[in-house]
Nucleic acid binder design. Structure first.
Lengths: 168, 168
DNA sequence: GAACTGTTACTCGGATAGTTATTGTCCGAGTTGATTAGG
DNA sequence: CCTAATCAACTCGGACAATAACTATCCGAGTAACAGTTC
C-alpha cells in the first residue's frame, strides 16, 4: 500500500497547468524546475497523462504541455489511474484454489475477501472522483488569504508561459 | 498503488484461524500448505500480525497460531495495517516548497492535494473497518450452499488442528 | 520590402542503467512433549 | 507402579539473498521559429 512519488508530481503539475491561460503551454523543464524534481522523470508521467487524454503535448520550440479538458472535467482519480495504472491495488490470486485439495470446480462462488477489498477500493476511487482540479484551485484560493501562493505561481508563469498562437 | 501479495495470504490465514475451535492452534506450515504458498514468507506476515496483537503465537511442539481476539473484533483494516504498515499510501513530500522560489515561511497553509488524498484514503480505511472476519465467514456460509467449502476446510482442520490443552 | 527556403534549436517520445522496496529463503533461540532412568 | 530429570523434536523469531518495481537518465524523432536568400 504505497503510491509512487510520481503521483504527487503529476497532480501538482496538472494543478499548475490549470493556472495558465487557455491555449498557452508550459514545458516539462519549467514544471520540473518549479517543483525541484527530475525533468526526465516528470516527463515520464506527463507522457502517461498525455496518453490517457488528460494533457495535450505541443512539440517544437515554444512547445510544452497543456490541459486537454477543462479543469472541472479532470479529477484526481483520472490522474492517479493515468500514472499508477488502472489495475486495482488488491488483486486476488485465488490462493484458496491452490494447495493440496483444491476445489474440483467452483467458478460460481466469488472470493468473499476479494469482493470486500474491491468494494473498499471503489470507495477510495469514488472519493478521488469527487475532487476535481478546479475544486483544488478553489480550495487553494480560500486558504491563500494574502495571495502569496498565487503571486509566486503567477510570477513563475510570467517567465515561462508559452502563449503560442497555435490554438485559440 | 499496489498491495503486496502477502495481504491476501494474511487475510486467508486469519479467516482459516477463525474456523478452528477456541484454544486450538494451527501451525504456519499447515497454513502455507493449505494455501500453496511459501511457509517462510507466510511466517513473516503471521509474525507481523502477532506483533500487532491480532494473533497469538504458541511455541514448541503442538504449537502454532491462534486468534488473539474474537472474529467480530478483527477487521480487514487491522490485517492490512499490520502487514503493509500504518503509514498512508500517499505521503506528501511538499514539493511545492521546493524549487527556485520556495515559500519564505508558510507552515499554516496545508497542502490541498495532500488533504484530498488523505481524505480518500480515510474513506478506504473506513470501508475496510466495516468488514470483520466474522462477517466474511457469514458471507461465505451464505454463498457456500452445498457446504463444499466448509467441508474442505473442516477436513483439513481435522488433520492439522492442534487442540493443545494450554488454554481453556 | 516581401515571400520562400534551408537551417537551427528546442520540444516531446521511447529505450536504457541505478537504486530502493518487496518477495523468498535460511538458520538459530525457545519451549513443550515424550522418553527413560530412578525411587 | 509413580516420579522426576533428560533428551529430542518441533515451533516461532529474526537475519540474509534474489527479484521486481520504482526512480533517474540518456539519446533520437519531430516540429515550429528564425535567419538568409531571392524576387
Amino acid at each position: 500500500m504505497k503510491l509512487g512519488d510520481g503521483v504527487e508530481q503529476a497532480i501538482h503539475s496538472v494543478t499548475m497547468l490549470s493556472c495558465l491561460q487557455p491555449g498557452s503551454t508550459l514545458s516539462a523543464a519549467a514544471l520540473a524546475e518549479f517543483h525541484g524534481v527530475s525533468t526526465s522523470y516528470l516527463l515520464k508521467h506527463l507522457q502517461a497523462m498525455s496518453g490517457a487524454g488528460l494533457l495535450e503535448a505541443v512539440s517544437g520550440p515554444k512547445g510544452g504541455y497543456r490541459l486537454a479538458r477543462a479543469p472541472e472535467k479532470i479529477t484526481l482519480l483520472d490522474i492517479v489511474l493515468a500514472v499508477e495504472g488502472p489495475e486495482p491495488a488488491f488483486r486476488c490470486n485465488e490462493i484458496r484454489l491452490r494447495g493440496p485439495n483444491p476445489y474440483t470446480c467452483k467458478p460460481a462462488a466469488p472470493c468473499t475477501i476479494n469482493v470486500a477489498m474491491l468494494r473498499a477500493e471503489q470507495a477510495y476511487r469514488a472519493e478521488l472522483r469527487r475532487v476535481t482540479v478546479a475544486g483544488i484551485i478553489a480550495d487553494l484560493k480560500t486558504i491563500d488569504g494574502d495571495g502569496a501562493i498565487a503571486a509566486r505561481t503567477n510570477g513563475f508563469l510570467a517567465l515561462h508561459e508559452r502563449k503560442s498562437g497555435t490554438a485559440a
